[in-house]
Design a protein around this nucleic acid. Structure first.
Lengths: 144, 144
DNA sequence: GTCTCTGCAAACTGTTTGCAGGTAC
DNA sequence: GTACCTGCAAACAGTTTGCAGAGAC
């Protein structure tokens, strides 16, 4: 983790009377280093590979803290468990292949237009947006 | 339930070697008569009010059957349990108020445009779309 | 009469929590 | 030294399932 990143997290944690421990930093690092969203179990396994002493409870507790601090986002995709990813500058959404299970990300300015439309039409003030397109990815379409 | 509707469901169930029982019809009816999506527990309570003998297991089993038959859709909103709604002609999406919890529906042609964009750009073939905007509804904005 | 349905209780999955010892500051 | 942090096991919520009796056709 970069120094300024650690400092930012440390400041956020301190503002809530919490501490930055090695295990918390590890959970954050695992999420950060993954290319996309991970389920809690997978975060646990990857963290455990780096520090065998970490427990699943700690992973969950840390995820909730990071979520509350606004550093990590919890995704409710079409599955029974949640996925977690870093909250970063630019928002993105998901294309989920119902055949192979692959999840790809996309961005589109149409989404911002949609938010504007909801503001105008319903007076709704958007804070966050979840979009999942479920269907067939290009690979699976070609196979059939 | 209208006669042709019952016939349609009956045919679908029969094609899978299943029966149309009073309790299954009841679960379908509850979902149909509700204005929007309901959690399983709420479907159970409403069904129980009409037939006190129904059990939560039966509700869940029926929901899974209706889901498999394509009659009912399971929604994974930003909550710990699922919601269920009828699969009808026109798709719609959700605005969730993070303050009062109210969930409103919306439709927009921008969504179809987005699907087209994904098809062109990534070769993704869309089968279903889930969109949730989380934020403040007009009422809650006015209150603050 | 056969095969499906159903209620009940128990199991199961993902997640949270109480507690007692360990650790950061 | 005083919080806060952590692992463990137990608890929890939502959902599924095995079984034996009830019901549909």
């Amino acid at each position: 983790m970069r120094k300024e990143e650690a400092d930012r997290i440390l400041a956020l944690l301190k503002s809530e009377g919490k501490r930055l421990t090695a295990k918390r930093a590890l959970v954050y690092q695992v999420i950060q280093e993954s290319e996309s969203h991970l389920p809690a179990e997978e975060i646990y396994l990857r963290a455990k590979a780096l520090n065998p002493n970490i427990s699943l409870s700690t992973v969950y507790r840390t995820l909730n803290i990071l979520k509350d601090l606004g550093l990590v986002r919890e995704l409710h995709l079409d599955e029974e468990h949640h996925h977690y990813e870093l909250v970063e500058g630019s928002a993105h959404y998901h294309m989920i292949c119902s055949q192979c299970g692959k999840i790809e990300e996309f961005k589109s300015e149409l989404v911002d237009k949609l938010a504007e439309e909801l503001e105008k039409k319903y007076g709704f003030e958007t804070k966050s947006i979840h979009i999942d397109f479920v269907g067939l990815c290009a690979d699976c379409r070609n196979k059939t």
